[in-house]
């Protein structure tokens, strides 16, 4: 009889432990299940890498002789815009048309012969350097080559 008493005490002591164990098991399983649902959903929402390969060279759909001096046009460079400028001196230059400030697309201002961003009044000179306003860095410049009348722009 004297042996039973501690055994019973033991049983009473393990009862809450067992319940706690089952509770924890249920908790872990529930977390696991929500994890198993959440993981594919989050992976799904993150977009797969863009299928369009980054472009290194484009041939523009204009003839070099058709571009007047002191003018600029936007062209497609892969999935981003570029800007082709003929300086008042007659040079052809190309830059990324993405303003380095907040990603607006820049344009050529004939009146001041500079590249201008309309969003926050950023100004770039004809070498792509900062000429005024908030842009923190110069425009990325591309290499322009002529293949006869064709204008070929290459990422330097």
């Amino acid at each position: 009889m004297s042996h039973d008493a501690p055994a019973r005490e033991n049983a009473a002591a393990t009862e809450p432990n067992r319940r706690r164990f089952v509770d924890r098991l249920l908790g872990v399983t529930t977390f696991g299940m929500f994890g198993a649902i959440l993981h594919p959903v989050l992976r799904y929402l993150y977009p797969p890498p863009a299928s369009e390969a980054s472009v290194n060279t484009v041939t523009l759909p204009v003839r070099a002789s058709d571009i007047p001096a002191n003018s600029g046009t936007i062209f497609k460079f892969g999935d981003r815009p570029g800007i082709l400028v003929r300086t008042p001196g007659g040079d052809l230059r190309a830059f990324s048309a993405r303003c380095t400030h907040l990603n607006c697309t820049v344009q050529y201002r004939e009146d001041i012969s500079q590249i201008w961003c309309a969003c926050h009044n950023g100004l770039f000179d004809l070498n792509g350097g900062i000429a005024g306003g908030p842009p923190p860095a110069p425009l990325e410049s591309f290499v322009v080559r002529l293949r006869g009348e064709e204008v070929v722009v290459t990422r330097s």
Partner: peptide
Amino acid sequence: QFLMAQVRFGWLI
């Protein structure tokens, strides 16, 4: 097609 082939777990959803 893109969803089924490229998007992760797109086929599952």
